[in-house]
């Protein structure tokens, strides 16, 4: 999956793929993130959980510069996101993102949604892209739906197209922001299975999720955020059984 030219920042796979240090983010007077630090190694899958409004979406959106940052540092493969001269397009080629509301382009078919960015942004050869797109469609199990418009697909199907669309750019990191929150319970599973397979293939994933069962099974590390800080974190085994902080305990007791 790796493409050439990434060593330029002196990044090696032994270093964290994504490294966030003392991140502060405010919207006007409202400080949403108050010094968040975390690291994700290549091939790791981490889950961020926490109550509504605790800044999970904000955190994950900072990683691909959809939100700007006031203070701190985010490095993605050595590329400093909080650099005024940052080439945002360069960063976004490395980072794929999937949203809660799918955000597919409604005037394009499923396969066009997948092929558009590699052709226009990466200027890749059309036939190559078509071949790659076909394999991605197979991967997310949407054979036969290539020529459907988003409006003709179910929520779960749309979300899987959105995942394939992000994968078509060959990203090194994938961000998922509550991607199953808008789905009905039966379709949640088909999307989670797709993500789980990705994680098992070694894709580096950062997930915001309320699916505790999924987090328990798939995540390498779980972070619990509340009011803009990481209250507690650890691998699933210890996190779920030996949570120390009262806020974590309360949250887990409500959700489990």
């Amino acid at each position: 999956m790796a493409s050439p030219g990434k060593k330029a920042n002196g990044w090696t796979p032994k270093q964290p793929m994504v490294s966030i240090k003392d991140l502060h983010k405010s919207f006007g007077d409202l400080e949403v993130l108050k010094g968040v630090s975390l690291e994700v190694m290549k091939g790791e899958c981490i889950c961020i959980i926490g109550p509504s409004g605790s800044g999970k979406s904000t955190l994950i959106r900072c990683v691909n510069a959809l939100n700007d940052i006031q203070k701190g540092s985010i490095k993605v493969e050595g590329l400093e996101v909080n650099d005024p001269n940052l080439d945002k397009l360069e960063l976004r080629k490395k980072v794929g993102m999937v949203f809660q509301q799918y955000n597919l382009f409604p005037h394009k078919t499923a396969i066009e949604n997948i092929m558009m960015a590699p052709i226009t942004v990466l200027k890749q050869d059309k036939d190559e892209v078509a071949k790659h797109a076909k394999s991605l469609v197979r991967k997310v199990r949407l054979e036969g739906k290539e020529d459907s418009y988003p409006g003709e697909l179910s929520g779960g199907q749309q979300q899987r197209v959105a995942i394939a669309r992000a994968l078509a750019m060959n990203p090194d990191v994938m961000l998922f922001d509550e991607v199953t929150a808008a789905l009905d319970p039966e379709t949640v599973k088909e999307v989670l299975v797709t993500i789980q397979e990705l994680a098992e293939e070694g894709m580096t994933c950062i997930l915001v999720t309320h699916e505790m069962g999924f987090a328990k099974e798939v995540a390498d590390h779980i972070y619990f955020t509340d009011r803009g800080v990481i209250v507690e974190h650890g691998p699933p085994k210890t996190f779920f059984k030996k949570a120390k902080d009262p806020r974590t305990k309360e949250f887990l007791s409500q959700i489990l």
Partner: peptide, 25 residues
């Protein structure tokens, strides 16, 4: 706004986003 954001996250430039994604809709 999700249309702008998903285009941005796919590394489309602003001009490409406008002409290929926003204006056709």
């Amino acid at each position: 706004t999700g249309q702008w954001e998903s285009a941005e996250s796919l590394a489309f430039s602003r001009r490409q986003t406008l002409w290929m994604i926003i204006l056709p809709q």
